[in-house]
Design a binder for these strands. Structure first.
Lengths: 249, 249
DNA sequence: TGGCGCCAACCTGTATACAAGCTAGCGACC
DNA sequence: GGTCGCTAGCTTGTATACAGGTTGGCGCCA
């Protein structure tokens, strides 16, 4: 259950546990990074052949992904990468916004200088993408790393798990909208968020971390909303959040 | 082909989804109501035989329960109902306490007079248990119904799902401690909670509902803590929940 | 009698065979 | 030519055979 160890391949003693997690992570990333766009039909047989196992472990992973809402298995039809249901995801966004605050309200996890260095390195790697051609997948992967790193300072493990789960449920939205958005602005926003979080962490101010994340989260929602003009994706989310936050009526 | 003979409660018409859910709910309830006490070894073969299916669907359900933290499958050993790890569950309690508030901060679900009637009926059924001999399992089942009914007023589906999951993760603790606690006091507390929630619902005051639930939640934690004197189960939870920043140790 | 060792009976994890069902596409018929 | 119907080839769900491994008990030996 420990996510810390980065065991590369399947060790003989670890057997099924590591194998499952590796397969799960691989497929989840392929979906979340749009290597498998929504609507893609995944065949258990083909995946089993690709990874050199039988259908059984593949099925187990697919069931887990189905529980996560990333795929949907339909009898005699196939296992299909779910479409982005904005009506559903709006609720997830609203909840994520609330959960950000909880991180600061519960005991924090361990934080070392090494993590700061990692954030600095991450910021540089993001910056490096700024003036090249738009590479949404690379940026998405880096933001995923950023999120993963931030998860470490959530001492409450159940909270960390659901935060992670909801992140992966929604991360595809931004990534899919990215080509229609202003590349440099998105990169700049991410760099700024990383730096601001870094500074707040150095000051050991968890509340400020939450503030920063909330601010950027909402800004990102607004930018996405601009692209989705007419659909009013996140308006309701922001209203619901502001209402209870600013002035309890 | 043998599965048809045993089709008394699980009909085959509703594909696999209904079958899965029925099996999952059944086993989860058995665990949460302590029909399977912690440490119980569940055999896939025996369960498959009992429900008239093969190991395959049983395994799927057990994997889901493992994800929920209710069982743990160990190679060549068996699938074992998890022991109550208070250190882990403390975090779940702390999170549950926070999530109670979120219900009132997010759009509510539909609520009809029928639900009020259901709560009234539930209150009476709980009261009926008061002066008989202690029947922890019956009380636990009723509280589970209460929780399920309350879930309806959580409009945010992801929140409802995780609330439900965390509830089932922790419900065994109270149930296991129940025999050592004062029966009538527990019954009275539950009746009072149901009535208070009912009244707040009639007034359409979701915040008061959360207040009531939070109050009873904490009171229950304290009562459990008294029984667990020396282990300091929930002390930390309450301290963390009271909002003050916790210094990293 | 106490201790060591082996073996049989389980268990779960994996691979495979079979069942049921949907769909695309082709062929026959109007 | 257009439409209907059927079949072949997929798919997932289920059942079963096999592999690897642990455990408890029985028997043998000191």
């Amino acid at each position: 259950m420990q996510a810390h160890d980065r065991s590369d391949d399947t060790t003989v003693d670890g057997t099924s546990r590591t194998s499952f997690k590796a397969l799960y992570t691989e497929l989840r990333d392929r979906i979340c990074l749009l290597d498998y766009p929504p609507g893609t039909v995944l065949s258990e047989n083909k995946l089993a052949a690709e990874f050199g196992v039988s259908r059984t472990p593949v099925r187990r992973v697919l069931h887990a992904l189905e529980f996560d809402g990333l795929v949907e298995s339909k009898q005699a039809l196939g296992t299909i990468v779910t479409a982005l249901d904005l009506r559903e995801l709006k609720q997830v966004y609203a909840l994520r916004l609330k959960l950000i605050d909880l991180v600061a309200e519960l005991p924090p996890g361990p934080m070392t200088d090494r993590d700061i260095d990692l954030l600095d390195d991450l910021g540089e790697r993001v910056s490096a993408l700024r003036d090249d051609d738009a590479r949404p997948r690379a940026l998405g992967a880096l933001y995923q790393t950023f999120h993963q790193e931030l998860g470490r300072l959530t001492g409450n493990r159940p909270l960390r798990e659901i935060t992670d789960r909801f992140f992966h449920q929604t991360s595809r939205v931004w990534l899919q909208l990215l080509p229609e958005m202003t590349w440099t602005r998105e990169v700049d926003a991410m760099v700024e968020e990383i730096h601001a979080v870094r500074d707040a962490l150095v000051a050991q101010d968890l509340r400020r971390v939450s503030e920063v994340r909330r601010h950027h989260f909402r800004a990102c929602l607004r930018r996405m909303n601009a692209v989705l003009a007419g659909q009013d994706l996140v308006d309701e989310v922001l209203r619901a959040a502001d209402g209870s936050e600013v002035a309890p009526t």
